[in-house]
């Protein structure tokens, strides 16, 4: 129960941050990537504020504690390989982000104050996630 409540609190803070920052506004996000046109550099301040806080916060946590408050250990990603899957997937994500103006972290909070057309994007994104998981589950072709 503690873990669920703490995730809810973290989600509330994260979600209000996304809304206040402008990350949930596709027009603003797209303008960050348009220095040749209607440029809006605000997103650099979002990334700056978020990275600074997380960088310092993580260091304080890891220096002072062996484990989080409500779990036996920290669950940190263990993957180290930089491969075609990581780069190709990230490249595709950027293509979709550039077409739509939505990233997953922006779209979820946007659902709370602009349900349409955010829901359309999220349904399509869910379909894309399921499609990719299905493709990943296919048996690998044998290579001679």
């Amino acid at each position: 129960m503690n873990r669920i409540l703490s995730a809810l609190v973290a989600g509330l803070v994260f979600g209000i941050g996304i809304a206040v920052s402008g990350m949930a506004n596709p027009a603003k996000v797209l303008n960050f990537f348009d220095p040749l046109g209607t440029w809006d550099p605000s997103l650099a301040f979002v990334m700056g504020g978020a990275l600074m806080t997380t960088f310092i916060g993580y260091r304080v946590i890891f220096a002072r504690r062996q484990a989080p408050l409500f779990d036996a250990k920290f669950h940190l990603p263990t993957a180290r390989t930089i491969d075609a899957r990581l780069i190709g997937g990230s490249a595709l994500f950027g293509l979709g982000w550039g077409i739509s103006g939505f990233c997953p972290g922006g779209a979820i909070p946007a659902l709370g104050f602009a349900p349409w057309p955010t829901a359309l994007f999220l349904i399509a994104m869910g379909a894309g996630i399921l499609l990719a998981r299905w493709l990943q589950a296919l048996p690998r072709r044998q290579t001679a």
């Binding site: 509330l12 979002v46 806080t53 779990d71």
Partner: peptide, 18 residues
């Protein structure tokens, strides 16, 4: 400010749930 709050959400989730 929004960015700091996003980071704070991430820090809360790490400190409490890891």
């Amino acid at each position: 400010v929004g960015g700091v709050l996003i980071g704070l959400g991430a820090v809360i989730l790490m400190a409490l749930n890891g």
